[in-house]
Computed example of a mutant assay.
Amino acid sequence: MPMLKLASHSLHYQLEGPPAAPALLLSNSLGTTLDMWKPQLAALSQRYRVLRYDVRGHGASTASAECRLADLAGDALSLLDALDIERAHFCGISMGGLTGLWLGAYAPERLQCLVVSNSAAKIGESEAWRQRAAQVRAEGMAELASSAHLRWFSADFCAKAPDTVEQARAWLASASPDGYAACCEALADADLRADLPRIATPTLLIAGSYDPVTTAAEAERMAAAMPKARLALLPASHLSNLEAPLAFEQALLEFLDAS
C-alpha cells in the first residue's frame, strides 16, 4: 500500500495510468475515500496519470490532531513533490474542491487546470462545523454515517442504488473521529470568497441541481467571480460523480482534454 509519511500523519495514495501521460490529482470529499473515484477511474486512467489519495483521517491515511485548509492543500502539494510531478490537472469534490480553490489562489503554478465539484468558497456555517466536530469526538461516526445519504444523494437515487448508498455510509463510518473532526474544524475556518477573483487557472465548476449542501446557486456565484471559470450543472445531489457518473465523466474529460 503506497504511503507518504509526513511529519504529523501519513497519506495513502494510488497512482495509475500511463507514466508519460499528464498528471491528474483527485481529492475526495469529507467522509469518503479515494475509492469514490472508481466510477471514473477506467476512463481517466486511459488518458491521464491518475493520482488518488485518502485525505488525512480518511481511508488508510492517518489523522493529524488538527488542520487548516492550507494544511489539506499542503498534503496535495507534498504528494506532487514526492512523485516529482511539477504540474497537474486537479479535480476535487466538496472539501476536495475547496482544497483545489486554495491551490488556485496560492499555488497556481502547480496547476494545469482546476475542476471544483459540489463545493463553494465557504461551505456551510462555521458553528455547525464546530458542533459536528464536537459530536463525532464525543460519540464516534456511527450516528453521522446513518444519515449521510440525506445530504449526499437525492431520494430517487437512494431508492435506485442502495448498494452505492451503503458503500458511502461505510466510508464515513470508517473515518477516524479525530481526523474527521479536524477536517470539520478546517472547514469552519475556511473562507476563500475574497480570493475568487484572483484565481486565473482555467476552472470547471460542477454543480448538482439537487445539491442541498453546496447549491447550484453558489456555483453560479463562484463562476461569476472567477475570471476563467465555467459551470456544468448535473442531475445529481452532493456526490455528483456517484449519482451521475457518466455525465460527470463526460464533463470532466471534455474539460481536461481541452485544457
Rank of each mutant, 00 (worst) to 15 (best):
L187F: 01
R193Q: 14
F248I: 01
C91T: 13
A73M: 11
L69K: 04
S117Q: 14
A60H: 12
I199C: 01
A173S: 07
E254C: 05
W152D: 07
S8T: 14
A155E: 15
L196C: 07
E139C: 15
Q131C: 09
G179T: 05
E218S: 07
Y106P: 11
A200K: 14
K122F: 04
H238K: 06
M36S: 03
E16Y: 00
S146H: 04
G59H: 00
A247E: 15
Q167G: 13
D195I: 01
A82M: 09
L114H: 00
A107R: 14
L4C: 06
L192I: 00
Y180G: 03
C158G: 13
V165P: 11
R132N: 02
D84G: 15
A73W: 04
L4Y: 04
L233Y: 09
L77K: 02
P19G: 08
V55Y: 08
A225R: 10
A247L: 15
L253D: 10
A65I: 10
F157P: 03
G92F: 13
L6R: 08
P108F: 03
C183L: 08
G140R: 13
H238D: 06
L72F: 01
A20R: 13
R56S: 01
R130K: 04
L15H: 11
A225K: 09
G17L: 02
T214P: 05
S119F: 01
R137V: 14
L51W: 00
A173L: 15
A181M: 07
C184V: 00
M222W: 03
G17C: 04
A188G: 11
P202G: 03
A155M: 06
L25K: 13
A216V: 15
